[in-house]
Each structure stands twice: as C-alpha cells, then as structure tokens.
Design a protein around this nucleic acid. Sequence first.
DNA 1: CCGAAATACTCAGTGCGCTGACTATCTAGG
DNA 2: CCTAGATAGTCAGCGCACTGAGTATTTCGG
Lengths: 154, 154
Amino acid sequence: MAAVDLTTHPGHLARRLQQAHHLLWNTMVSEEITSPQFAVLNTLVAEPGLDQRTVGERVGLDRSTIAEVISRLGRRGLLDKVRDPQDGRRSLLRLTDDGLRTHRRLAVRTARMNQVFLAPLSAAEQTQFFELIRRVSDAAEGLRNPAEPLAGQT
Amino acid sequence: MAAVDLTTHPGHLARRLQQAHHLLWNTMVSEEITSPQFAVLNTLVAEPGLDQRTVGERVGLDRSTIAEVISRLGRRGLLDKVRDPQDGRRSLLRLTDDGLRTHRRLAVRTARMNQVFLAPLSAAEQTQFFELIRRVSDAAEGLRNPAEPLAGQT
DNA sequence: CCGAAATACTCAGTGCGCTGACTATCTAGG
DNA sequence: CCTAGATAGTCAGCGCACTGAGTATTTCGG
C-alpha cells in the first residue's frame, strides 16, 4: 500500500486540465479546428509569411508535429505554402482569405470559451493561475539546454 | 492584425505545461514508462483487482485509451488481465511482482521530479497552483453532464 | 570551386486522447 | 424463457506530440 496521491502531481493535473479544455473547446469553439491549429492561424495573422520552423517555435510544437498541423490546414484551404525563392529549404506560410475568416470567427468564440473556463476563479486568481503555470513551464523549458551558462562569447 | 495573445489562453498554457512535464519526466523518471502508465500502476497498487473501466475512471482516461495503455503494460509483463468469472464482460487487473517493483522504483523518482518541477514556486504557491488547476478542471468536468440538477431521488 | 557543417523539412515509429460503431455479456420486464 | 436495454470491451479513424533517421539546400572554410 505505497500508492501515491495523484492530485498533488502536476503532470497529472496538467493532463486533466487539458482534457477539460478539450471538452469545452469542442462544444464551444469548433469540432473541426483544434486548439493547436488555431494557434497556428493566430501566429500567421500576426506574422504572415513565416516559415514552418518559426511557426512551430511560436506555438511550441516540434518540427514533426507542426508539419502535420500545417498539412491539415493546407488540405482545408486555410493556408498556402510556397517554397522560399531565396532559400530553397524553407516553406513560407500565409493564410488564405478563408483562413483569415476562420481565424476571426474562432477568435470570438475562443474568448467566450476562456471566460467560461476560467469562471470558477476570481480576476485575481486568474492572474495567479496564468503566472504560476507560466513560471513552472518556463523554468522546465529552461532545463532543456543546461549549457550556455554565461554570456561570455562562446 | 486581429491576432490574440496566447499567453492568456488557458488551453495553450495547459499544453505547454504538459510538454514541460513530459520533458522532465523523460529525463528524471523513465523513458520506458509514461506518466499515464504510472498512474495506472499506482491505481492498481491501491486497489488490486479493479476492472478496466474503473481504472480508466480513476486516472481520467476513456475506454479506448485505457485499453491501449493496459495492453502495453500487459505486454511488458507489469500486470495481468483476467476475465471476471462473475461477470464475463469485465477484465480484472492486477500487478505482477515486476509491476509492483517498477511502481516502487518510479514512485521515488516521481517525487523527486515533482520537487524539481515545482521548485520555482514557494510552498504557498504550490498549494495555490494545485487548487486553482483543480477548481478549473473540476468545473469544466462538471459541465459534461449538464443534467442531474437536484438531489431529488432520480 | 568543393567538401563539410548547419539548417529546413520529411518520414517512420511510438504513445496519448477522443468519438462512433460494433460485439459480448449481463440484467430486468413481461 | 426471451427480448430489450444497459454495460464492458474492442476496433477503426482522426489528431497531437515526441524521437531518431534521412533528404535537400545553403553556407562556410579551405
């Protein structure tokens, strides 16, 4: 009987939080476009013409995953992908009119959903919520490259 | 230029939090056993002989996903799965000795990882962190079955 | 100019997570 | 007993997410 209490395990809580979010997203935002897909659209609204890798960096997806997400968005005609004439390795991405319209429509619903999702918390608690999660995520992300200790050049 | 700030979107933050956790888990706990798999082991340590559906309920996985996770654990010889003689629909689950040993080993490492993961927060903040995430998750989970309004029997 | 390193992307493989359709089994009503 | 409904599990299909290997292109050193 050495079982552990999972409700104090951040990983378990993070997974449950995502599931809860997924549930609400499906009912209140879209069953077609997923949350990561919306994040990609959103990035390309802000910075049209980005290459695939950079979009992945912005939304926090690795090269393989971002490739799949973009391929799906392309199949749906929400974005165009063209080879960079300056650098044949890159694919430059740009939303279509349909992609722009979709983003606008979903942005409204997303805002509504976030309100419902965060309704159990007071305004102050919501701020705390964001800050605590961000601090933990950023710190863990920082452990990824333990090198690069000082600013001493190289 | 109607782009949105994703850092105030709980869904986005939840995803990033899980990625950060996954990263730490892989380096500090195990590359073989995943966090959901550990959750299943942990549940069966506390309640041996549970059926598949109930285990899924305990750890928060749907019938399909829990089936796959259990199948993987079974292939690795960490648990046994036998048909319930009382009810032929059910599969009863029980850890093997190897499963028990694995759980014990990982439980220690998991505790260490949680400390590192939560190190950026003070003790009070950690409590807040758990509570806020739990409240949001529970509330969203509650929206799943909007029925069952009163305690009036049936 | 030419070969090596870096970079962007693709592909194969594994695993989590969900829905909807299906099968097997059990339970309850007539 | 026998059928209708509920319940446990399987299966197919989609999508996110990661790693490691491989390809194409660019860049940099000699």
